[in-house]
Design a protein around this nucleic acid. Structure first.
Length: 261
DNA sequence: ATGGCGGTGGAGCACCGA
């Protein structure tokens, strides 16, 4: 049995205290991190080791950065999708000879505020997703088991955001982006949350601004997917909302699943 | 949905996030 947590921490260095609380309370076997915003020398490998975790990082200065922590030693298989080495948004480790664990931080894709007609970031996002879907398809076709978690930066249905009208035309919600998330399920990869429920108003992100948390102005952005062979192994899924309400928190809540593997 | 938050970098304020 493996308990796996995925969390967009919005800087690992700023989250030290709350992250220790999470580990102490939840005792996960594996942790997928996104937006760690750290390079190798800034990442707290030593602290994680003292808590019993091996750490694997695809790091970068100031932005992005994904990591995997594990109680058991793993081998790093891949630290970027081919052609997307410039932004640290993908890391894959091997749990055993057949099973991959992958942490992803999808590009946001919104244009810069001072250049709203610029589509280069959205283009990058769409191409990054194409590379992700292609890579996962190849791995599944080879018979690998895949456990994928992270921040996908897609509002898949109108009910996945507190007010879809406000996001019309944004890079989180446009049809081309929604189609990329659907392409993942077409591989097929199993969306663990949506196996459990199809209800609206389920969120994993609440903006720091505008009182989004107390008003429950949330967005569903974080997911776990597993390859079809692991579908029957899924025992539970939860959004650990409490952590969004704690001191010095991230704007994302951790998500948690238990797999009978 | 941005002035209003929170983080990084590098020492001011620009840039990024969603």
């Amino acid at each position: 049995m493996k308990k796996i947590i995925s969390w967009n921490v919005a800087s690992i260095r700023a989250r030290t205290s709350l992250f220790n609380t999470l580990i102490k309370n939840e005792k996960p076997d594996i942790i997928l991190l996104q937006e760690v915003k750290a390079q190798d020398h800034q990442f707290p490998f030593v602290e994680f080791e003292s808590m019993g975790y091996h750490g694997y990082l695809s790091g970068q200065k100031a932005y992005n950065g994904v990591a995997i922590l594990s109680l058991t030693r793993m081998d790093v298989k891949r630290v970027a999708l081919d052609g997307f080495e410039d932004q640290a948004r993908f890391i894959e480790t091997a749990l055993d000879e057949k099973t991959s664990v992958i942490s992803v931080y999808a590009p946001n894709g919104q244009p810069p505020m001072n250049f709203p007609e610029d589509t280069s970031r959205l283009d990058y996002k769409l191409r990054w997703f194409d590379a992700l879907v292609k890579y996962l398809s190849e791995q599944v076709a080879k018979g690998r088991s895949v456990i994928l978690g992270g921040d996908f930066n897609v509002i898949y249905q109108d009910g996945d955001v507190y007010n879809a009208k406000l996001f019309e035309g944004s890079a989180l919600i446009v049809p081309e982006v929604r189609q990329k998330l659907k392409a993942l399920t077409d591989i097929p990869m199993i969306n663990i949350l949506r196996e459990k429920t199809n209800e609206s108003g389920v969120y994993t992100f609440w903006d720091f601004q505008g009182g989004a948390w107390p008003r429950n102005h949330g967005i569903l952005l974080d997911y776990f997917f597993v390859s079809n062979d692991l579908k029957s192994k899924v025992k539970s899924f939860d959004i650990l909302k409490d952590y969004r309400g704690m001191e010095k928190t991230s704007d994302h809540a951790p998500i948690c699943c238990v797999l009978d593997i």
